[in-house]
Design a protein around this nucleic acid. Structure first.
Length: 646
RNA sequence: GGACCGGUAGCUCAGUUGGAUAGAGCAGCUGCCUUCUAAGCAGCAGGUCAUUGGUUCGAAUCCAAUCCGGUUCACCA
């Protein structure tokens, strides 16, 4: 079917937990450094081998950050080693500690043993060397290209209504996971499937045709996706009206038939979909779907027109939230794709035919059920399209992994999809991964279109930006911090803060968990929020407006907070890897906030520009710079910008 | 009923392959702006980690059962 797509969605994205180690290609030598934890593991392993002639795999040695209440920076947990080495905890800790300090003077400056824990102090010189190498590396923590390619599909809107809060979580997750994959060295293809055809699309079309009086986004001044969404809602209302007499009649018949009212109501509820087919307006919508599939010119034309309104509206929203895609698939172009594969599956005996001619796959051996893949009338079902699309994606991009960012109500669907693709031997089937996330709910429960409790994405953004502006204007009365900014710059600032707040709020929670969206709390710009992190970044820049680092020597020793800062910053590389392994942007969000919080303590405790000595000033300016880089880089992985002043 | 997911402070959430006295934010209470940005900092208070049993040097974390909440098991998508 000829389809005209006059839209221009731009885009990008990334995934999680890879079972395989990264094959890194050396490109940036400064990014090839070994993490401190690995350095310690290797040193301990080597020392054990020397002292006791026993080989212990470095990665199997537990090394963690020392708890604040103890002396030291990193802790080796000895319990696991006691049996193999036949030592008592204190004895082993002491022997190992002495040998480690004696043999690695540049690395360790001291140790203590408490119970089965060997606490090691890493020397100031090691941290200073690290700072020297990395403080001005804006790409610290990012890995060189590893030659692997990953596809991330996210967003996937229906073209019959505007985006809502659930779509925002999906978009931010998908986008961020894509960026995190890139930071881990993968090439990423961000994709989206536009669900642009089907009975739900016809519903808005019918309603517009009947009640629209030729209304357009231009004539009404309503954003296209919202306008179409209004007609979708209108369809629902009309249908409800038409169902009333039908249901009443049916109810009376059932009761006359001897059923109790309760039984009858339950029956009607179960048969809701079937009964709706008796409503005139529903029949009209179904006829329209038939006409669309037959390519009836006026229907196709209306479909194109209304979809173009929606796309235009989506483009605006995507632009505001900074979402984009490298490749967009349209269901109108892919919905027939899986049909050949059904034939192939039948030949390969992956599928089988039932007596009525429908085609099925039997997954009972995999702990699942039988699943239909082709209706008896020969048409494809949802899963069939997805099989076809998976095949199509591989033909074009040959990705090592293919991530689908889709809500957890489709867990079963994706389990089935992967299994079928594997059985069919589709390339890349093993790389299919469903990044499942929990629903966004309100304190009052689920969002329901019928009850008008759906939080609209555009409204949400408007409200957050309004809040950011309000807060900024309050602050301006106290301190004239943003006085030098133009009106346009101020507006951009409000957008950075407002959209950052909603992004951070949705992305800071473990994707897997469903989350409660409390409008009042989300609007708060204090505490564990993007705003606090952005504010911290603005502070670093405020310092640099007064004075820059020179690149000179930062001295030989560190105060506790100075060292804590460097230790925290060093961890960033590991956090990126972890967030990638787990496909979990919340790991980045939590870390970036920790950096900001620690920096604020540091900032409060030690003056940078009025440091005790010029050497201390240089040290703190370098810490200031690395903090700024890490915050900016980490926030960028979440799709959140940071302002120079606020 | 089968399968899968969740249950941690009043609320919203962290808690790495099992490690030391379970952490943040919000809300509540005390202090701190003549200073590099107070959208911040320091502190107080707040816990039967759903329950029970098990594994072991050690369990919020692993196993089993139970309770509570959610999702799913369509010739819808």
């Amino acid at each position: 079917m000829p389809v005209n797509h006059a839209r221009t969605w731009n885009l990008k994205l990334k995934p999680r937990k890879a079972g395989q180690a990264l094959k890194t290609v050396p490109l940036h030598p400064q990014n090839q450094r070994m993490a401190i934890v690995s350095v310690i593991q290797s040193a301990v392993s080597a020392q054990i081998s020397q002292l006791y002639q026993v080989n212990i795999e470095p990665s199997s040695i537990t090394v963690s950050e020392t708890k604040p209440e103890f002396e030291g920076d990193y802790t080796v947990v000895l319990f696991a080693l006691l049996k193999t080495l036949k030592k008592k905890p204190e004895e082993l800790g002491t022997e190992l500690g002495q040998a480690l300090v004696a043999g690695n003077a540049a690395l360790f400056s001291g140790f203590n043993v408490i119970k089965g824990f060997l606490n090691l102090a890493v020397s100031d010189s090691w941290w200073l060397q690290f700072l020297k190498e990395q403080y001005n590396n804006a790409d610290y923590g990012r890995q060189p290209r590893n030659g692997q390619r990953v596809m991330v599909e996210y967003s996937s809107p229906n073209t019959n209504k505007p985006l809502h809060l659930g779509h925002l979580r999906n978009n931010f997750l998908g986008w961020s996971v894509a960026e995190i994959y890139k930071a881990n060295g993968y090439e990423v293809v961000k994709t989206c499937i536009a669900n642009d055809r089907g009975i739900h699309i016809c519903k808005s079309m019918i309603a517009w045709q009947r009640f629209g009086n030729g209304a357009t986004p231009e004539s009404t001044g309503i954003k296209g996706d919202h306008l179409v969404g209004d007609y979708y809602v209108m369809f629902g209302n009309v249908l409800k009206e038409q169902m009333k007499p039908i249901l009443e009649k049916k109810l009376a018949a059932l009761i006359a038939d001897g059923k109790t009212e309760e039984e009858a109501l339950k029956y009607l509820k179960d048969k809701k979909d079937e009964l709706e087919k008796e409503a005139e307006i529903m029949q009209a919508a179904q006829q329209m779907l038939v006409d669309w599939e037959a390519g009836k010119p006026d229907v196709v034309e209306l479909w194109r027109t209304m979809n173009s309104w929606v796309y235009k509206g989506f483009d605006e929203t995507y632009k505001r939230i900074g979402s984009n895609f490298d490749k967009i698939y349209y269901e109108s172009e892919t919905y027939l794709l899986g049909k050949d594969l059904v034939e192939e599956g039948l030949r390969k005996k992956v599928f089988f035919l039932k007596d009525d001619g429908s085609a099925w796959v039997d997954l009972t051996g995999d702990g699942l059920d039988q699943k239909i893949v082709r209706r008896r009338d020969g048409t494809a079902v949802y899963i069939t399209q997805d099989i076809g699309l998976a095949h199509e994606k591989q033909k074009e991009f040959h990705c090592n992994r293919s991530i689908y960012v889709v809500g957890d109500e489709q867990n079963y669907h994706f389990k089935v999809l992967k299994l079928i693709c594997q059985k069919l031997g589709i390339e890349g089937a093993d790389g299919i991964y469903h990044l499942s996330y929990g629903m966004v709910e309100l304190p009052t429960g689920k969002m329901k279109t019928r009850e008008g409790t759906v939080v609209d994405a555009d409204d949400m953004l408007d409200e957050m930006i309004r809040e950011a502006k309000k807060k900024r204007e309050e602050k301006e009365k106290e301190l004239n911090k943003t006085a030098e900014l133009s009106a346009a710059e101020l507006q951009e600032l409000d957008e950075i803060v407002g959209s950052g707040a909603i992004k951070f709020f949705l992305v800071r929670v473990d994707p897997q968990k469903r989350m409660i969206f409390n409008p009042e709390e989300s609007i708060d710009l204090h505490g564990f929020t993007a705003t606090a992190v952005q504010y911290t970044y603005a502070r670093t820049q405020s310092v640099f407006r007064k004075e820059m680092y020179t690149g000179g020597e930062p001295g030989a020793d560190l105060l506790p907070l100075e060292k804590e800062m460097i230790i925290k910053l060093e961890r960033y590389a590991d956090i990126i890897r972890q967030a990638g392994d787990e496909m979990n942007p919340s790991a980045i969000a939590g870390y970036v906030y920790e950096v900001a919080k620690l920096y604020n303590s540091f900032y409060n405790e030690h003056s940078i520009l009025k440091a005790e000595t010029p050497v201390k000033k240089e040290l703190r300016l370098q810490i200031n710079q690395m903090t700024a880089h890490v915050i900016k880089s980490g926030m960028a992985l979440l799709g959140i910008r940071v302002p120079d002043r606020m």
